[in-house]
């Protein structure tokens, strides 16, 4: 196995791939539901500077995930423009990788072969096999390279999905509630790992979540959305140093503000 200390930058991101700049301008989107248009995004404009960690926060089903699909290039927007580093987004690209809420690992492939998917799809696997090992090492799964997905716990499966994304040296990592289905302890552990990965690799990160605390713990900026059709209602810079603590007084105060924006400020149990 490769030594962790020698591999971190040299293998995964040499030459260093810094984060991409994202520009979303005036994007609206609707789906056709039983013949009638169902608006999901309403005139959303958003930018992310290279290396920024932006959390998109809003109620479930508000349309945040749709915005991610547009950024990933899986669908074109009904209206508006999306661009990365000034170039319009016309389709999926391995420099913009999505980690979905479900790990969506291929059950017929081992963890290693799942992580190798991007390289294989682009015909790079033969020459760059070491990148797969490095990515698995990075998420702590190198001992499970030959395991099949059904043998993994939820957290391990999501780590494998993360490794599958990181192998491609993304310049923009798109996270669609990747921790949403994990138990709370695994979730806390993986929040820390996400921040460390982001700090180390320098990619721009877009995280969709409906967990206020998670957004404030991880992101440099939190964008709050309204219920469907999603509009941006607030942008809150989180100017706190990492590592952050969930009982930090400033974070608790921000949390109360954001909850008020979402309409549950006075909720008590």
């Amino acid at each position: 196995m490769v030594n962790a200390a020698t591999l971190d930058r040299s293998l995964l991101s040499a030459p260093l791939a810094p984060g991409a700049a994202l520009d979303v301008r005036g994007v609206s989107h609707h789906y056709q539901l039983k013949g009638a248009p169902l608006p999901v995004l309403d005139n959303v404009s958003l930018t992310a500077a290279p290396g920024e960690f932006v959390a998109l926060l809003g109620p479930s089903g508000c349309g945040k995930s749709t915005l991610l699909r547009l950024v990933a290039g899986l669908e074109p927007p009904t209206q508006g423009e999306l661009s990365v580093d000034g170039a319009p987004i016309t389709g999926p690209d391995p420099s913009r990788v999505v980690v979905f809420q479900d790990p969506t690992l291929y059950p017929w492939r081992t963890v290693w072969r799942n992580a190798a998917l991007g390289l294989e799809a682009r015909g790079l696997l033969r020459s760059q096999r070491s990148r797969v090992d490095a990515a698995l090492e990075l998420v702590g799964l190198n001992g499970f390279a030959d395991a099949y997905p059904h043998q993994l716990s939820g957290g391990m499966a999501q780590r494998a999905a993360l490794a599958r994304a990181l192998v491609n040296e993304p310049r923009l990592l798109i996270l669609d509630e990747p921790l949403g289905k994990l138990d709370s302890l695994t979730r806390i552990a993986m929040q820390g790992e996400l921040v460390r990965l982001w700090q180390r690799e320098g990619f721009t990160t877009l995280l969709v979540t409906h967990d206020v605390e998670e957004a404030l713990l991880l992101a440099t900026r939190v964008v709050v959305f309204s219920p469907r059709p999603a509009r941006i209602t607030a942008e809150i810079p989180v100017d706190l140093a990492y590592p952050r603590h969930r009982d930090d007084a400033r974070l608790v105060k921000l949390r109360r503000e954001v909850l008020a924006l979402l309409g549950v400020g006075d909720a008590t149990v």
């Binding site: 990933a72 999926p92 391995p94 990788v97 979905f100 969506t104 291929y106 991007g118 799809a121």
Partner: peptide, 13 residues
């Protein structure tokens, strides 16, 4: 599962 295609497409398939 249609997500299987999405995953592969975002990875450049």
């Amino acid at each position: 599962n249609p997500d299987f295609y999405d995953v592969a497409r975002t990875l450049g398939a």
